[in-house]
Design a protein around this nucleic acid. Sequence first.
DNA 1: GGGCCATCTTGAATTCACGTCACAAATGAT
DNA 2: ATCATTTGTGACGTGAATTCAAGATGGCCC
Lengths: 324, 324
Amino acid sequence: MARIDTNRSGEMDVFVRVVDLGGFTAAANSLRQTPSGVSKLVSRLETRLGTRLVNRTTRKLQLTEEGQAFYQRAQRILADIDEAEREAASCVPRGHLTVNSNIPFGMLHVMPLLPRFMREHPDITLDIVLTDTLVDLMQARADVAIRAGPLGASRLIARKLGTSRMAVVASPSYLARHGIPKTPADLAGHRGVGWTFPRSIRGWPFRRAEKIEEALPPPVARASDGETARQLTLGGIGVARLALFHIGPDIEAGRLVPVLQNLNPGDREDIHAVYVGHAGPLPARVRAFIDFLAQHIRIGDPALRRGADGKWKIAGDKRARDDK
Amino acid sequence: MARIDTNRSGEMDVFVRVVDLGGFTAAANSLRQTPSGVSKLVSRLETRLGTRLVNRTTRKLQLTEEGQAFYQRAQRILADIDEAEREAASCVPRGHLTVNSNIPFGMLHVMPLLPRFMREHPDITLDIVLTDTLVDLMQARADVAIRAGPLGASRLIARKLGTSRMAVVASPSYLARHGIPKTPADLAGHRGVGWTFPRSIRGWPFRRAEKIEEALPPPVARASDGETARQLTLGGIGVARLALFHIGPDIEAGRLVPVLQNLNPGDREDIHAVYVGHAGPLPARVRAFIDFLAQHIRIGDPALRRGADGKWKIAGDKRARDDK
DNA sequence: GGGCCATCTTGAATTCACGTCACAAATGAT
DNA sequence: ATCATTTGTGACGTGAATTCAAGATGGCCC
């Protein structure tokens, strides 16, 4: 077998024990080995180094000068190894964590949790990067990314944080100026708010006689992130399709009005925390963060209903809580 | 098989190469291994440490924070190991050397060589301890001992440096006062110079009709070393049996006179450099010293002859040379 | 957008280093 | 002098690590 290397740390370990305990037999016992094994190992080491480390009779041990020097160095090296491994393996989450999130979800659900997270993990420092464009986790040097919508097949591992439905909305002022679309086909005559980056689905889905058809208003403005799109829509620029978890409060407050809601297919978009998988155990701080998110974020598939008073209500959406 | 320890240095070596060369395959090639071996090893390491060290796709490597820290520490540790081993294995003789010698031989044959030895090996420092009493090499922390006479069976290794015959001598003044012994039996009426420590042979051997008989003058003075015994004898205290390499010049100069020389059995006493054997290779400085002694000390079995003028001569004894 | 190449990963067979066992030698003490 | 303890040596067996072969994944180029 192509021997990569001799076990130099093991040799040093045994040698140090021999010196510390003052004998091969004692060292062997402390290592759960036989004296002959220790004898052979020390002989191997000496042969490999080309010098004798210890003069020995059946009664006494006497370090040579080389042995003395090697002993001290080995002691130090073993301590260094232990420290290096212990630090790398530190069970308490610590170090730096880079989180990448889409903007709406990050702002509304993640950021409110961060103070508590950092209180619970004082040894973790955080970078929060909010972008809606898809990023390469590794290129962005991010530990975790939070994405909405379908995940491309990759070796990323996803942990579901919640689900949200979508709604096509516009501002009351826009609807007053351009009228309320009654059918998907009407959208062709409307002004749309779209995206600067490609999305997984191009058109907006609508129910039509047990089937799904797509429609899309011609975009007159495009945003690079959901929050900008929301602002544009709030400003009466046009019609947009946004996530309920994002614009729920706007709808309830009447700042945005759902349209074609009776044709909404009710498709859900999952929100996931994704991280690189299949490459050894996760660092403690990454796991801690994901567990924290999964534990504290509960978005129970919110639904849109019209109240008796004609006002829209969001039901089932439990917001992130950083209280308690 | 009770695996004493994982090969922590080997793991670090592989990991460092992976980082340095930027890939598993490159590291595998540089280590004469297969990529799969490297992959498994890194996975093992990560599992053992309980954290991931490197995020990897088939194209890119991205160190985690733990990986970064571990990489730097590992690099340092590997350098330390190399240095420790290289220093221990240093091929050029260096360090401290403790030599133990019997006094006559040390003074007359070893010490004259030392200036040259130290000139040739400037990195060696020397301790010279002269004692005639037998010492335990290890207890005396000596690397080499030079002893005359038969060696006790032990695991010491002996290298022959020379041979010398013995002679029974006394000073002219003593002989003038007490007469010259003609037979071994006469010694019983003489005054002897003996030893404070036990010697391997108790009596002095003499030839008598193809057989060896022993005789010993009653000691009136005892010395702890050969040089003291010589001084006592030169002072006319009594009769002593001393090595020719030691008192040769005294005999030639007439300061000491051989007696019973016609009955001298001519037994030889070997002079050896002894060192602890069977325990791994010798340190370079020890080997250098022994080789140096063996090369420069030539004592060719000196013999005692009476010249035509009645004066005694020493033949065949080449003295140590520190010249040239 | 699809095929190709390079890379990493996984599972099963293989192998060689390392440790165990039993015995011998040596040392110091009783 | 004998005994007890410790180190050293040779033969043997184990099993952990490596290799081989095949499968996945990602990037690149056309």
